[in-house]
Structure formats: C-alpha cells, structure tokens
C-alpha cells in the first residue's frame, strides 16, 4: 500500500500491470438499454363505482436476485391520478422526475385545472413512443389510474413501445396472466362498474396480490395500494398479503426430496 488512495484496493501494478484505461474510454459506439436491469413486476388495477384502485408490490429484482424490498412503484400525481410502474426501476425514477417537473410547471400556470389521468397517459405514451423511435426505450409498462376530462373513472396502460390500451381492469407483466382472469371472473363485462364498490375492488386486488405472490417468483408479499376517488388519492404503502396458506405446498409431489 502507498499514499495514493486511487490505487488502494487494486491489484498491484508491478505484478498485474496497471489499469487498462481503455475500459474507461468515453468514445466508441453509443449504447442504449437493450434489456432492463433492476425490475419491478406486476401492477394490477381495477375500476369501481366512483374511482379506480391500483396495487403493486414493493420488490425490485436484479435478475433473479430480490435486490430492493422497499421500492414504491405507485406514483401519485396532483392528488388525483396514480401511475403504477412495471419494468425498469431506474427508468421509473427518470419518468418520476419528468412527472415532478410537469407537476411544478402546471402548478405555476394560473389556469387552475390540473392535468388529469387521461392527459398523463397521453404524455407518457408520447414519451415512450419517442424513446422507442430513437431505439433508446424506457423499459416500462405503466398503468395510469384516475379520471378523464368528463370526470369518469379512467384506467389505461402504456408500454415501452408507446402502445396504449384501456380496459375496466388491467394488469402488467405476470399479472396479465394471473390477475386479469381473476378480475374478469369477479367483475364480468356484463356487470357495470357502477355495481362494483370500492371495498369489492380493494378486496379483489388483495386477492390478486396473494395469487401473484404465490406464483410469481419475482414478487413480494408486501405491496402498495392506492384508491383514487373524487376526494383524492388514498395510498397505503405497507400492506402485506393476508391469510397466506402454504398448506398446498405439502401436497406437491414429483420433485425435491420426495420421490413419489
């Protein structure tokens, strides 16, 4: 060891050779995200009479490593809309910053009417579409929940390609496979959303989060849930999957220690 802190912890130059500075070169081809790094899994949301409920667990995975376990993936906007993020967490934080600057800018403008969830979705989908057209995507799939210009409950999604679609209940990632069928069974299309109470919606999301925790390997039993009504947004960020039952696990045969 010598007095130069920059080489502390490095292999000795006289034995291993000095650091190859070409690793640090800033020239060369521009690289873009070609796959996400730290990721969040599903976001699940459902409309009900007078609002929308949305939930996402608090895990951020690094591949199969459960890297961060306290990540808030629901972002409240102007106390009237919520954006739920699936996909890359750093891109989520970047978008969060974009939304923050819009929020501030809109608050300074004097006209007084704030951007609604529909406006937010339009904005986000244009950001996504622009970035995908530059071959530099923001690797997210988001759900936007809130109200449209007419004051009706609004729920829609935007993905990294700039695609948007809307439905009475929707989910991103694994939730599209596991949660949507549950929600479709609980709230069939024939049933108008006026028949669905806030409690129905929240209970359905709790059920979905449980199934997702059981069957999605990159999920967590701690989650955030937000309920958006005309009165504002009510967010709970320390929810936990209740009444877990792992009794079925004993009945699983065919791998592991058991042979038959």
């Amino acid at each position: 060891m010598n007095h130069l802190p920059e080489i502390w912890g490095r292999p000795r130059n006289d034995i291993y050779g000095s650091y190859n500075p070409s690793y640090l070169k800033t020239s060369g081809p521009i690289t873009h995200t070609s796959s996400p790094t730290v990721t969040g899994t599903s976001v699940v949301a459902v409309k009900f009479n007078g609002g929308v409920a949305i939930a996402a667990d608090k895990l951020a995975s690094y591949g199969s490593l459960a890297r961060f376990t306290d990540v808030k993936r629901l972002r409240v906007f102007a106390n009237s809309s919520v954006v739920g993020f699936g996909g890359d967490v750093s891109d989520m934080q970047y978008i969060d910053r974009l939304l923050e600057s819009i929020d501030i800018r809109e608050h300074y403008s004097t006209h007084g009417n704030m951007l609604n969830a529909k406006n937010l979705l339009t904005y986000l989908s244009k950001v996504f579409y622009k970035r995908r057209s530059q071959f530099n995507p923001l690797w997210n799939h988001v759900l936007v929940a809130g109200f449209d210009g007419n004051g009706a409950p609004f729920l829609s999604s935007a993905d990294l390609l700039g695609n948007t679609f809307s439905a009475p209940h929707m989910a991103t990632g694994f939730g599209a496979h596991l949660a949507v069928p549950i929600l479709r069974r609980l709230f069939p299309e024939e049933r108008p959303i006026e028949d669905i109470t806030k409690d129905n919606a929240v209970a359905a999301l709790q059920e979905c989060m449980k199934v997702l925790f059981y069957r999605d390997a990159r999920s967590l039993d701690e989650y955030s849930i937000a309920v958006i009504t005309k009165d504002g947004v009510e967010v709970k960020e320390d929810e936990k999957v209740q009444a877990q039952s792992w009794a079925f696990a004993e009945a699983i045969r065919g791998y592991g220690a058991q042979t038959a």
């Binding site: 292999p11 130059n13 006289d14 034995i15 291993y16 050779g17 000095s18 190859n20 070409s22 690793y23 060369g28 081809p29 690289t31 873009h32 995200t33 070609s34 796959s35 995908r132 057209s133 071959f135 995507p137 390609l161």
Partner: peptide
C-alpha cells in the same frame, strides 16, 4: 504499460442490439 499476466486490451466486442421496436 507493464505487460503483466492480466493485462489485456478490450477488443471491440459490440453488444448486440436486441430491442425490437
């Protein structure tokens, strides 16, 4: 530099662009 055992240059291994728009 010193040509130690572990010294090697980075040959241009360009990562494939796998994003399909």
């Amino acid at each position: 530099g010193d040509t130690g055992t572990f010294a090697h240059t980075t040959t241009g291994q360009v990562k494939e662009h796998s994003f399909y728009p």
